[in-house]
Design a protein around this nucleic acid. Structure first.
Lengths: 263, 263
DNA sequence: TAATAACATTCACTAATAAGAAACGATCGA
DNA sequence: TCGATCGTTTCTTATTAGTGAATGTTATTA
């Protein structure tokens, strides 16, 4: 905990991790960011030799994690298989989807279900309302948990020490000038969220986007995740932002929590 | 191609693949099937030593591919992140989703968008209609391509040699007694599909389930994938199965193909 | 409560193997 | 046609992944 730690690029912890696996992760990351690449390109990007990259790709391909078209390699759909499988195991999975759809329909905006994994917020489901697509919260997208409304809603239900741990591990990086950048500010915000019962994202992740979120508690009284409704600032404001949408969210989350208790 | 090949369990091709990576794949597969497991359990299942499994898990965890709760390890949501990203890069992604939703709404049944990856059929999107959920085609689920209606619809648009290659590689394993088990039978079926313009799945993947599928061609005239409508045998029969649903599919696929051409 | 068992984790060593350099072959453009 | 570039294969060596034993931790039973 004191000296070396895993940063975003997947660097080694020390001697307790497998280097070759980490090198594969690096290749996967490059393939994701480049939306496909060729051997030499990946060798340059990762600092590995061509032959080594080639072996990694061959192995990944045998596992369907990578596909090959001509000389171009891309990420494969095996990731979707595993990802969707993980998602389907979340408690109350089906009920959550139904309610989320209802939320999108009634609000007309984009609705999302977000959970915490380690100290990050991950969007699990996403439903576009009649006003069409908005916000960058693609399914699977990971946010620093203090940025989006759903993340803050979840944080507000965690014990203080857990929040401290998360902040210590990930810090409070900013996405826009509105992102919470200070630990005191964060705790004040969480207190406010608990008082009024919903979290707001006022252009803290994306310029021009506001969102409202409410945490979802499971029957054993821990946070399962959060529902959020997101839309452009010109629609998400005034009474709609601070009363109508929060009220709708509360109604739907209440119904969901009741359903979860009876299943 | 003559002696060793990659079977489902991820066995080595020969000396051209990385063994340590394959061992990780094995652990991932076990974690998926067991829906979480502990170190000793995984060591027994994979034949590796506890310490080695532990190192793999530690590395996978550092990459967010695995999570740990107490002593239990599970697959992580990083897979969803990568999977959703891959999916979002599919050509016409947004248009496909819109049309699929329309298809589910108008048919009332479960609608799916399936593509080919290597020689397998993979469900990319899935929309439940008013009649609720049916069929086991979870997002990301891989089928042997000759089994589901969508797979057969795709095969029907591929050159004969490609189909031959696929059959040679994967064979024609069965899922029910109705599954096509013979190569001649398959080619006769593909011919029938081309003639009438749609594919049928008559309990070939699942007892009690029938489906209709139509291939989607992209502007350059290769198969992008297929739309399918699936439902229980008691609703999917007679005129509805052989006329109404195919007609609906054709209409929606036609509209989609037009939209794809103009984008 | 103590003793034991089962398990996760760490450590140090060695055999297995992953990475690199170079050779080969194929493809593309001048 | 030649040269250059790139993917793939081969071969060798240094790296490191795997092992078994030691340590630490938690749960179980007497």
């Amino acid at each position: 905990m004191e000296d070396s730690q895993t940063d975003g690029t997947g660097a080694s912890v020390d001697g307790r991790t497998l280097k070759s696996l980490e090198r594969s992760f690096g290749i996967i990351t490059e393939l994701k960011e480049r939306e496909g690449a060729r051997v030499t390109e990946l060798a340059d990007a990762t600092g590995l030799s061509k032959s080594s990259v080639h072996k990694h790709l061959t192995t990944l391909r045998a596992g369907d994690f990578v596909t090959k078209n001509g000389d171009e390699y891309r990420l494969g759909l095996r990731f979707l298989d595993l990802g969707a499988h993980v998602r389907s195991q979340i408690e109350g999975n089906t009920l959550v989807q139904e309610k989320l759809r209802e939320l999108a329909r009634e609000s007309g905006e984009t609705a999302q279900f977000t959970v915490r994994e380690h100290g990050r917020a991950v969007v699990l489901y996403r439903e576009a309302g009649s006003h069409g697509v908005f916000s960058k919260g693609r399914v699977g997208k990971r946010f620093h948990i203090h940025q989006p409304a759903a993340g803050k809603a979840i944080l507000a239900e965690l014990p203080r020490e857990t929040v401290d741990d998360i902040v210590e591990t990930y810090g409070l990086p900013d996405a826009t000038e509105n992102t919470i950048a200070d630990e005191d500010e964060l705790f004040a915000e969480l207190e406010r969220i608990r008082e009024r019962g919903f979290a707001l994202n006022e252009e803290e992740t994306t310029k021009g986007l506001r969102a409202v979120a409410v945490p979802i508690m499971n029957p054993d009284d821990y946070v399962l995740g959060a529902f959020a409704v997101a839309g452009p600032t010109h629609r998400m404001k005034g009474e709609r932002l601070e009363e109508d949408v929060p009220e709708l969210l509360h109604r739907i989350v209440n119904e969901l929590e009741l359903n979860l208790a009876h299943s």
